[in-house]
Each structure stands twice: as structure tokens, then as C-alpha cells.
Design a protein around this nucleic acid. Structure first.
Lengths: 224, 224
DNA sequence: ACTATTTTCGAATCCTAATTCGAATTTTTT
DNA sequence: AAAAAATTCGAATTAGGATTCGAAAATAGT
């Protein structure tokens, strides 16, 4: 299994041509670029995008502000790349874990439990990044961000898996039900990450179970 | 029925002693203060707290920046008062509409429908303010804001109304179920206001119905 | 070893918004 | 009417973060 740093490199290679990510020739520039991206991901667990200054990012690696701008056109270009990087990791995990053939014999209820567990874990592990990306996106209404894209993609995967299993519902209603259920799940977790509300916060071990219960009930599945 | 401006005055009178809201002697100063608060509420429908400058607020009433600071210690004190003002209006409506005696003969299902309708309407009508307050609060983790207070208060009211009606559940689980249902509802609407997600956005006429369906199902109520 | 290219450094510049402050204006009191 | 108090004005100040830029340092090529 690849380490986190090596994984960064593999995923990153796909997005390197992005406008605003400046050309790298020497290995040290590549190392600088990667170190800045890793630092960003870490720092976003402590503060949001606006509160994370270029000076913070540079200092996290004993680098200068000028060297940041030698690698990224500006702060926005940097963040766009970071978002692509992180959400691409998620998408890879999704394709692996939610393969239609792999889950062929699974019941709807069991899939709902897998979905809630997976999504809650993503939000738990990357809460800082998600929070920052959400806050940043909310100042650009209408923007189709990597985060939104990843969320929509996953909802599509889940809909394709679950809708055919909701045989007790009219055929026309199945996909819409699953999509709304996903909207409930995302809403719940987005609120958890942004506002840390009660009664169950993101770290509460009961959260997955209660979410699965709610979604299953809404989808009309037998309680287990 | 009092007009919006007169209503502002009535509600405002309760919060005037706030630290950071400067003393008023002459009527023109009172008018300035009130005009600035009304402008803030309006402007927050177009932009968030950070993007709403003091110059914007002043200009909305052909006033100067200096006159803003003659009335409020700083931008934070201003926003705190504005939040108290708006959430106090909500709380008044809640006390009126969710009176235990008034809803004595109501079924749980019917109360859920009333709850979802009411909360969705609050979010529809004050989406700009709510969005701004949420974004602002998320940069002050742990802060117990007027918005959170109002949300918690309402959840308490709903719990007191619904829990006794969930006779099919163990007595120990009833309040917890209602509280989680409220968390689902808030999460859904907070996401709607911040991110305008699909499939059902805040203006979709199906939203209340689908939310009531989800919450009723989760609470184990008979579909209607 | 020397030259050319790349990269980083760190101070300076730029920009923007919050806040301050002394003067001008308005209102109230004598 | 004059003096005192309250209020507003609008330019100046302050603060803080993004970005630029010329010089210094590091690396690659000959």
C-alpha cells in the first residue's frame, strides 16, 4: 500500500497541467510544490482557507513566500489543485469500494450502512479540508467545485446501486428517493463539519448507525 | 399587525443594553442606529458578513462611516445585535405557533409537517442573514451564537411536543430520536442555504413534503 | 571550472477594509 | 441668541495579507 506522500505524487501527476501551476524543471522545485501541498492539507485542519496565509504555508516548510509564487500563480490556483488532489483520492476509493459486481449480492440495507460508514469516515478524516473547501465555495455561489463534483459523482454511484433494489417503490420514484437520501446525508455531515452541532457530533460513535437508520427508514427498508 | 420597522423597534428595545452598542440621546441617533440595522439585514441577502463593508452599510443610508462608529463599537458588536434582533423575532413566532395547549389534539405526523413547514419558511425568508450568520459563526468555533441558541430552543420545544407522542418507542429513546430528527432537518437546510445543492433546493415546493416524509419515517410514524 | 538556467530569498509594494479622529454640523439647553 | 452637548462627516491612519521583484543561491550543462 502506497504511503501518503507517494500517493500524493501518483494522484498529483494527473492534475499537473493545471493553469496556475507553474512549470517544474528541477527536482527541488517539485519537492517544494509537494511540500506546500502537504502543508496546506495539514494546516486546513486548524484554520480555514482565508485564515491560512501564504506566509503560514511557506513557514511550515522553512520556505520563503517568494518560492510559493514560483510554483503557483496565486493562492486560488494553489487551492484548486489541492482540492483536485484530495477529491481524486476519494474518487479512487469509491470506484474500488462501490464496484457494482463486488456488491452484487448485497441488500439495500447493507449498502446504506456501507455508504454512511464510508462518507462519515471521509468527513472525519478530512474535516479540516472539507470545512475549508465548503467555506471557500460558499463565497463563490454557483461554482462547480471539486468537492461538489466528488459529491455528485458519489451520489450517482449510490443511486445506481440502490435504486434498482427499491422494488417496493414505483419505478419513477426510486432514483429521486435515493438522491434525496444522499442530500440528507451530505447536509447532516456538512453541518457537522461546519458547526459541530448536537446531539450527535462528528466523533460520536453512534452517528453512522443513526444515519443508516434514518436513511433506511426514509427509503422504506426493513429495520435490521 | 405591527409593520416591519415598528417591529424592529419593539424587539430591539430588549437588547439595547448590549456592550458595544453606544448610547443614544437624540432621536436622529436612534434613527441612524435603526437604519443601519435594517440595511444590514437587507444587504446580507446579497453578500456575507465579511463582504459587507462598513462603507456599504453607511452608503445604504447616505451616512458616513464615522456615524456607524458613533453607534456601534465595532463591526462585531453590530452583528451581534443584528443576530439577537432577528432570532428574537423567530422565538416570538415559535412561542405563539408551538404552544402546547394549542397543539394538544394534534398527531405527531401533523406536528412534524408543521415543524418542517415553519423551519423551511424561516430559512427561505431569512436565507441571506442565516447564511451570513453561519459563515461568521464557523470562523469562531465553539461560539454559542444567537443562531445556535434559537435553533436549540426550537429543538427543545419540538422535543417537548413530539417525544410524548412517540408511544411506540421505548421511553428512553423518544427525546433522542426527536433531537436527531431536528439535527437532520437543520443539516439539510443549512446545506441548502450555504451550498444550494440538489436534488431539491430551498425554493423547491417539494422540499417540505419530502422533509416531513423523511422525519416521519425516521420517527416511525404512520405514512399519511 | 565556467556559464547558463532554475529556484529561492526576503524586502518592498500593493490593495482593501476596519477603525480613528479632529472639524463641521445639528440639536438641546440655558 | 449664545453656549453646550450630541452627532455626523470624511480624510487619515492602521493593520494585515496577497503579490511582486531584483539579488542571491543552487543546479544543470558544456
Amino acid at each position: 500500500m502506497a504511503t501518503s506522500s507517494a500517493r500524493t505524487k501518483v494522484v498529483l501527476r494527473r492534475h499537473i497541467r493545471r493553469a496556475g501551476v507553474l512549470r517544474v524543471v528541477q527536482p527541488r522545485a517539485e519537492a517544494t510544490r509537494d511540500a506546500l501541498l502537504d502543508a496546506g492539507r495539514r494546516l486546513l485542519n486548524e484554520r480555514d482557507f482565508d485564515a491560512m496565509s501564504i506566509a503560514d504555508l511557506a513557514a511550515a516548510n522553512a520556505l520563503s513566500v517568494g518560492s510559493f509564487y514560483g510554483r503557483f500563480r496565486d493562492k486560488e490556483a494553489y487551492f484548486a489543485l489541492l482540492q483536485e488532489m484530495v477529491t481524486s483520492e476519494w474518487t479512487e476509493a469509491t470506484l474500488r469500494d462501490f464496484d457494482v459486481r463486488r456488491l452484487a449480492g448485497w441488500s439495500a440495507g447493507r449498502i446504506v450502512r456501507l455508504v454512511t460508514t464510508q462518507v462519515v469516515n471521509v468527513y472525519r478524516n478530512d474535516r479540516g479540508f472539507i470545512s475549508a473547501a465548503l467555506r471557500h465555495a460558499s463565497t463563490h455561489p454557483g461554482a462547480w467545485t471539486p468537492l461538489k463534483r466528488a459529491g455528485a459523482r458519489f451520489a450517482n454511484v449510490v443511486t445506481a446501486l440502490l435504486a434498482p433494489r427499491l422494488t417496493h417503490l414505483p419505478r419513477m420514484a426510486r432514483a429521486a428517493r435515493v438522491r434525496f437520501a444522499m442530500q440528507l446525508l451530505y447536509g447532516m455531515l456538512i453541518n457537522a463539519v461546519l458547526n459541530d452541532p448536537g446531539p450527535l457530533n462528528l466523533d460520536d460513535p453512534r452517528l453512522e448507525k443513526e444515519l443508516a437508520r434514518a436513511l433506511s427508514a426514509y427509503l422504506g427498508l426493513r429495520p435490521r
